[in-house]
């Protein structure tokens, strides 16, 4: 069996939404170079919708694929849905990740959470009541 699913390899070879949004509404960076994975997410938010998302990743194949898939799962979706994106959903959308690579999907979830937290810090009025 190959190391990764076809889906992981496809996203790794052709990552979606790679790059930077210069005037992003929210930016989040998680991980550290010491551990070998860093993900940075840039969000553009209009009203209640994630209108654009881009990422930069330093990491292994599954880290790049997880970033790519996570951006696909939230792009054009309501912010409320992005808030609820789980690492499990990212991993499932990739047809699974090896057990020791699940942390890559966790990083993708955390990167989006971190970018949304940055957005709410800049726009406290948008923060949904809890």
């Amino acid at each position: 069996m190959a190391l990764y699913s076809e889906k992981v390899m496809e996203h790794f070879r052709n990552p979606r939404n790679v790059g930077v949004i210069e005037d992003a509404d929210g930016v989040g960076e998680v991980g550290n170079a010491k551990c070998g994975d860093i993900m940075k997410m840039y969000l553009k938010i209009d009203g209640d919708t994630v209108t654009d998302v881009k990422f930069e990743t330093f990491g292994c194949g599954s880290a790049i694929a997880s970033s790519s898939m996570a951006t696909e799962l939230i792009k054009g979706k309501p912010v409320a849905d992005a808030m609820k994106l789980t690492n499990k959903a990212v991993a499932e959308a990739l047809d699974g990740l090896p057990a020791y690579k699940m942390h890559c999907s966790v990083l993708a979830e955390e990167a989006i959470q971190s970018a949304l937290a940055d957005y709410y810090a800049k726009h406290p009025e948008k923060k949904p009541a809890t």
Partner: peptide, 25 residues
């Protein structure tokens, strides 16, 4: 500097090169 070894290996494999890395992954 600035890149991670596993992704380098996978892309080299796509180009027919078998190599290895000391990255954590």
């Amino acid at each position: 500097e600035g890149i991670e070894g596993e992704s380098l290996l996978l892309l080299l494999d796509d180009r027919g090169i078998c190599a290895s890395s000391g990255s954590a992954c």
